[in-house]
């Protein structure tokens, strides 16, 4: 167990470990990002990244094959890309295509290249590819009226049964918005953009977070959590049937649910709520979701 007290001067909104579990990135309302090195039970602050003009909502580590690279997004409408080289951190790119708060940022499965997905309160999501020659080619999509709160990539799947399709056409992601909807998007080669594949209705208030399970199974799992104090698990068989809706539990949670995270293997879902609790959930053999414990303080 590692505990880092008073890492920031103001509220921390996100904390993420890198691929190897050695580096921790945190971001806060104090407009900064901090990098900690974590070794066993010890930790050391190694950098404070300054560059955003507003609260920083989320951070995400790129796959290590691209280097030590971190993306961050902020209320200032920007996505910044940071890189460490020889122990020194610097800002290497600024992705400023949104006109309002960027609420989530996530790197695509590394098989797709250095591809970043950002969701903004301006109602759009953007997918930007960082190419070898330094150019950026953003694809911008009108996703949700009144704002997008979160976006999450589907894992890279091998579609052996559909050999004719180009590999790009298996790229999918999910978005959750202030219109209470969850939407599924899929790349279309012909139009060179992501097209709406499905609209999932079930929440009665803002969708705060969506998380596509990274486990590569025949069945896809998406968790969506909302201001309406519920969590819905959406499942799809074989990547092409319709989505099935399962309420995680019938009764509402005591408070707003803010964040959903799938374990990297085994499909254990961690939910974070406004009541300061983190609860864990797993699916039983009957396909129902049951509590798998609570994370102690």
């Amino acid at each position: 167990m590692v505990a880092i007290a008073n890492a920031h001067n103001d509220l921390i909104h996100d904390a993420v470990l890198d691929y190897y579990g050695k580096r921790l990135a945190t971001c806060s309302s104090d407009k900064t990002i901090k990098i900690f090195e974590v070794e066993g039970e010890t930790h050391k602050e190694v950098a404070t990244l300054e560059g955003h003009d507003g609260p920083v909502w989320r951070v995400d580590w790129a796959h290590p094959k691209f280097g030590t690279i971190l993306a961050s997004c902020s209320y200032d409408g920007k996505v910044l890309i940071w890189k460490e080289e020889n122990g020194r951190w610097s800002q290497i790119a600024c992705h400023a295509v949104h006109s309002a708060s960027v609420n989530s940022v996530q790197w695509a499965p590394h098989e797709y290249g250095a591809l970043l997905l950002a969701a903004s309160s301006d109602g759009k999501v953007s997918v930007v590819e960082f190419k070898e020659n330094g150019t950026l080619t953003p694809i911008i999509i009108d996703a949700h009226n009144i704002g997008v709160n979160s976006a999450s990539w589907a894992p890279a799947t091998l579609q052996e049964n559909k050999p004719t399709k180009s590999p790009e056409e298996s790229r999918r992601f999910v978005t959750g918005g202030a219109d209470n909807l969850v939407k599924i998007w899929k790349y279309n080669n012909e139009s060179q953009t992501y097209l709406l594949e499905d609209t999932l209705q079930g929440h009665s208030d803002w969708v705060r977070d969506v998380a596509w399970s990274p486990s590569v199974l025949l069945r896809s799992y998406i968790a969506s959590v909302s201001q309406d104090k519920t969590c819905i698990i959406w499942t799809q068989e074989n990547n092409d049937s319709s989505w099935k809706k399962t309420e995680l539990q019938k009764e509402r949670f005591p408070d707003v649910l803010w964040r959903a995270s799938w374990s990297l293997s085994g499909n254990i879902l961690a939910l974070s709520g406004g009541d300061n609790k983190v609860t864990l959930w797993k699916e039983n053999l009957e396909g129902n979701w049951e509590p798998a414990g609570e994370v102690e303080q």
Partner: peptide, 20 residues
């Protein structure tokens, strides 16, 4: 705006990173 929960995220090795 912004997360107002002890946001928890899974990492490799069954570790969970959470805000205090």
């Amino acid at each position: 705006y912004g997360n107002r929960s002890p946001a928890a995220q899974w990492a490799f090795g069954g570790k969970l990173v959470k805000i205090s």
